[in-house]
Design a binder for these strands. Structure first.
Lengths: 221, 221
DNA sequence: TCAAAAGTGTTTGCTATACACCCATGA
DNA sequence: TCATGGGTGTATAGCAAACACTTTTGA
């Protein structure tokens, strides 16, 4: 038992994990095994350990559910409505993460819980206030495409400009002019040719590019 | 005594309260009366009550220290380094507030603690990690001037365009062209003439304007 | 009439957008 | 040789920045 002179809330981190699969923006949900909201889908998350930084807690949850680490992770917002959890006062510090498309080999589900990737249009009803959290994360993601190189975090080591363009088109749900997009990307000077080519199908091979600073997201404009 | 099956952190809100005084961007600090950091300057803040929303807690602290309410208040970031408070694990959800220049009549200091307004260039050493919090808030403020109407929240009911321009010049520490600024503001269509004039000094009176939606901060561009 | 701040347009450069055809490859 | 996606340049419009003089007032 842990006792305090005045009441303390519980603090969790929840993570909105985005990835692009099957030409769709998807996010990872887990099916709750226990009460409350047993059987409902929810964001991965858990309690913050007392000796653990918030971001470390988020990274731990991320690694637990996906097996990946070292990907883009950013604090989103802190949600603390008094009754968002029926058990006790729980304040959650929400994060969001972007998983490059090649880092998804195994869905290393730790304790045999059900996990699933859901497109933004096919989300089930979520536990707690997780729908609000997802919506906030989605807004942040879309907004950041406009003024940062955040979307580049979805790319694998090597990629073509057409693949990068597809990332923007999928998330923004809009067609982009090919020539203007390529001019724009190259002018940013954040990608360089790897020297390799991707040959697939009966057409001209595509130049492969890589990020100049893999882990850096820059504010642009 | 309050007891839990596993350890809980304490949760506080701290507020960075910005205002424009004496043609400077200033923020409100309080001098700590107790340990730790007794006698040091710190951000106003306090523990979140268990039945209280986070924003409500921030508003409560804000009203306690300044006597004002209903001003712009936005969640900034949550700081949770394990050792940021020497007593116990304390996670703080930081907010920032903007006080219009006419809402500062009395510094209604509740329990006779020392409070003071400090310019960004004359900040004392702060308690805890409050310097990091202040820096984060300042960056957010400066960034938001560029793509929102946030700065308008510093204005009183009626103001001249020159006064509004001064807000930008003070915060951005840059001279702005008068004609371009006025064209830009009027094109936003967020201010309207009040019909009144401000006459002060031996020169042409200035048209007074008011905000069309006083409480609304819009993303622009 | 003088000093002081208010108020007002035009030109120029840059950035964003629209738009169509040739290239390299495998089948 | 054909189908497929890769790759490229130019013209135009819209927005941002530079820039200087007239107006109104109180002393």
């Amino acid at each position: 038992m842990y006792s305090y002179a005045y009441p303390h809330p519980a603090v969790t981190t929840d993570i909105v994990i985005f990835s692009l699969r099957d030409n769709e923006l998807k996010l990872l949900l887990i099916k709750r095994k226990g009460e409350p909201f047993k059987g409902k889908w929810a964001l991965p998350g858990g309690f913050v350990q007392l000796d653990e930084d918030l971001e470390a807690a988020a990274n731990r949850e991320l690694a637990q559910e996906t097996g990946v680490s070292g990907v883009y992770l950013e604090q989103l917002y802190t949600f603390g409505q008094p009754n968002r959890d029926p058990r006790e006062r729980v304040i959650t510090v929400a994060y969001y993460a972007l998983i490059p498309s090649d880092r998804l080999t195994l869905t290393a589900s730790t304790d045999a819980e059900a996990v699933g990737w859901f497109g933004m249009d096919e989300l089930p009803k979520l536990a707690f206030d997780h729908e609000t959290i997802v919506e906030t994360a989605h807004q942040r993601l879309v907004a950041k495409l406009d003024y940062s190189t955040l979307a580049f975090q979805f790319m694998p080591e090597e990629f073509t400009l057409t693949e990068l363009q597809a990332v923007y088109e999928i998330i923004l749900r809009a067609d982009i002019d090919k020539r203007n997009f390529r001019k724009w990307v190259l002018a940013l000077e954040r990608v360089e040719e790897s020297g390799e080519y991707r040959r697939q199908g009966a057409h001209r091979p595509a130049k492969l590019y890589r990020l100049i600073n893999r882990d850096q997201v820059d504010i642009i404009k």
